[in-house]
Design a protein around this nucleic acid. Structure first.
Lengths: 226, 226
DNA sequence: CTCCGAATTGAGTAATCGCTCATATTTTCC
DNA sequence: GGAAAATATGAGCGATTACTCAATTCGGAG
């Protein structure tokens, strides 16, 4: 340790550990008692550090939640990148739904605080705004997928359908975190998927028949754009 | 029942007016800035009374929200009583959906704080528990209606379907209160109804065919475990 | 008008929370 | 070893909040 080889790697890696530890503890406390009720002193104590140290790494309490929201955003984007492959438009609907839903369920299951952020339960205005931005992004991603699945669909309907799908999954997350009964979770998951399947089949059916019967008036019936 | 922790029994008609005034102001403030951020002093000031007077009528801050939740519960029950008529089982599904959904949308639109209570956004544990109780009641009411619409359905599936319907309407409330764009609200309302319609048609279709084929067990589409 | 209880008032209290900073400890590097 | 820099500590500060209570006003009966 007396070599002057690397500048401050030990410091950095230790710092990162500290940050992660704080984030993990905070996430646990937030989900247990809510954001407001989770005091910074309690977070520090449970993380095994002093309150002063906590404030060396985070400017204020909100910054902790912001960091968690950022991590959530990152992981969610990674999931989407994984899902959004070339063949996404050619998958049977039930398979597509599983592909779209299951990884996200795992995400929220593995880190329940993400559900809090998503559902906007008991968060500051800043976080709520950030969360809404993330959701907007999700809607656009889903709309893109809709366009791949049904190229004949118009952009407006694709967005609308995306909003509905996102909402349904949000409901599913909410329902799943409202109960500890694993059986109920399985049933409700299957049921929401059934609902989405029925809805999507109906939407696709209607846009397809619109296409077949020739566009009723003029042009620009089929969405393009993008 | 009937203990909202109101301190003073209305000896004068003036008292009831006061209580209503406090409740109305509190409801406004709660929806504007949230429950935590709405201080009792601010409620009193806006209601044009002193903080002392407020505490003559309500034991503590939570009692105000509890009174609002009780009012919400009462109005919701009244709506259900109105909807749950004898012919409810014979209505075409789209009509039934309108009958079930539209009055509730009006309720939440007329008093947005009800949406806060329903969605559990930023409320105390007590209120969240009370809200969950109300929701449980809603599920049972909906399950009853499901049994009337489709007598061949089994109780378990009826409850499951009720949970889904309640969730979907909850989503709709959430979506509608997330935007001020009236056009969006109309579209999203129609779309959620479409989704529910597709889902209910599917559920009824499956239970009917189950009935016809006399297969109480076995080739059910919804995977049965246990 | 006088008197008295009920209603109202709002400055003040106790408790809590986010956050600071002077001090103490550890690490780095010669 | 030892100076200096980096990091950690936690008592305590200031601000905020729900809530109290002694003082004051109101209203109506005699």
């Amino acid at each position: 340790m007396s070599d002057y080889s690397i500048r401050s790697v030990p410091q950095q890696s230790r710092s990162q550990e500290r940050v992660d530890s704080i984030l993990g503890t905070a996430a646990d406390l937030f989900t247990e008692v809510g954001y407001e009720a989770a005091t910074t002193n309690a977070i520090a104590e449970r993380a095994g550090i002093s309150i002063g140290t906590l404030y060396r790494y985070f400017a204020d309490k909100d910054a902790i939640l912001r960091a968690l929201a950022a991590r959530y955003h990152r992981e969610e984007q990674a999931l989407f990148d994984q899902v959004f492959t070339d063949d996404v438009g050619y998958l049977p609907l039930p398979v597509l739904l599983d592909r779209l839903i299951d990884p996200f369920l795992d995400l929220y299951c593995g880190c329940p605080v993400y559900a809090h952020i998503l559902l906007g339960t008991d968060v500051s205005a800043d976080i709520a705004a950030a969360s809404q931005e993330i959701e907007q992004e999700v809607i656009e991603r889903l709309a893109d997928i809709m366009q791949k699945v049904a190229p004949q669909i118009d952009a407006r309907q694709a967005r609308l359908t995306a909003v509905i799908c996102k909402s349904a999954v949000k409901s599913l997350i909410s329902l799943r975190s409202s109960s500890n009964d694993e059986d109920f979770r399985v049933q409700i998951t299957s049921e929401i998927k059934q609902m989405l399947l029925a809805y999507l089949e109906k939407v696709l059916d209607e846009t397809e028949s619109q296409e077949r019967h020739r566009t009723p008036r003029g042009k620009a019936r089929t969405g393009r754009r993008r």
